[in-house]
Design a protein around this nucleic acid. Sequence first.
DNA 1: TTGTCCGTTGGCACT
DNA 2: TAGTGCCAACGGACA
Length: 505
Amino acid sequence: MAKVPSVIHWFRLDLRIHDNLALRNAINEVRQAENRKHFLRPVYVIEPDIKNKVGENRLRFLIQSLQDLDSNLRKLNTRLFILRGTATELLPKLFDKWQVKHLTSQLDIDRDIVLQDEVIDEVAEKKDIFIVRRVQHTVYDVHSVLKKNNGAVPLTYQKFLSLVTGIQVKDTIEITKALSDNCKPPDFDSKDYDVPSLEDLGLDESALNPCKYPGGETEGLNRLNMYMAKKQWVCKFEKPNTSPNSIEPSTTVLSPYISHGCLSAKLFYHKLKEVENGASTHSQPPVSLMGQLMWREFYYTAGAGTKNFDKMVGNPVCTQIPWGKNDEHLKAWAEGQTGYPFVDAIMRQLKQEGWIHHLARHMVACFLTRGDLWISWEEGAKVFEDYLLDYDWSLNAGNWMWLSASAFFYKYFRVYSPVAFGKKTDKEGLFIRKYVPELKKYPTEYIYEPWKAPKSVQTTAGCVLGVDYPKRIVDHDKIHKENMQKMSAAYKLNKEKKAMKRPHT
DNA sequence: TTGTCCGTTGGCACT
DNA sequence: TAGTGCCAACGGACA
């Protein structure tokens, strides 16, 4: 008997059923094969070294998202097949074993996935497998936006907006009709394909911090609907007026759901349009919620069109800056032990909860790079990759370049003060008291600057500097001025190099 | 080529 | 409390 061919949908950063064009393609392919039976296998590949690549909070978010995805797929009378191994090694073998004729997936920008796809494409071509990749992770097709700009990367947000104005955004799609039993392969019920627990991956779940943002499509959609119901709030939203150091998030925290594809960016777009269209006035990009979504599109476009976007060297949009190396300072920063309470509180919130406010990211990124520690943005990006639930290849690199004044933003003399910046929205230092509990009892006048507290105050508050909490590792007032000079010199050199490269006519 | 305006969200002193 | 001007002076876009 001839083997029954299979159709694979390969889930990556599209952990959802709703608005999943590529999944629908796979399902349609199976359904249309009326008189020639096809099996459907929606797969997700867990790489062996995932624990080294993905921080524990994000790994938990991923596993939760996969569990939710599996349960949503089962409502369609199919399931998620988890594959354990390296995608580029494993998939080619399964192409033969499963008689794969058709492979669908989302079109991704993330460099690692793009490289993976190149390998798979080559194999698929040899084996005569039809590959379908759909644009569905962004609102716009970033490659056609680049084309519209004659292949050049838009270097300003306004330029990007002007490129996408007038582009019609397609409607979202839904998949509701369940599949027939004919689509189930014989090993459908095998436990080998079950979503692993964190324990299976070698992680002690009980040792993790409490889960503040559970992963999954269901949770993402609930969160979206909850915020979109607050129409006034949506219409008045202005990012700079939200607080980086409120005890509960002052923004939506939809980002982890969008970055994992639990939530469709296009659905977010349409829901926002709906709310905005129903209001007499609403805030505008860049500060509005729609503006935030457009920032994501901006960085995706830049990431797709720039070589070595996540690196300094060999990256055409990135100013070359002679960053220093200081592993001790880097470690202190990453672990929230710099002696600057505001910086430390943010870094500890990041490590514990996997999410920090965008402006908090500005604060700590500026501090690590051009502001205080003079350490490369690439080092900071690696730490964020590890800790952030909403880690996203394009956004992470793009924002780090922005904050370090390496690309897109150039006013390097605008430096965030680790003392003044937080005070604007949290005079009492409640945020610091929560995340740096050593300082909980400090008088308000010293909460942002504990080094100014007399020894007697330190003792009374139960936190002596250098014993219970670190002394500050740098003197911001002094060092940020020195760093500004270094930035100025780097810019000057960059300008000269550019002038030399320019053709003389 | 040069000038001008503008740019997601700084800090600080002052009114 | 919010607004303004100064700090020192960037690159991109466009005329």
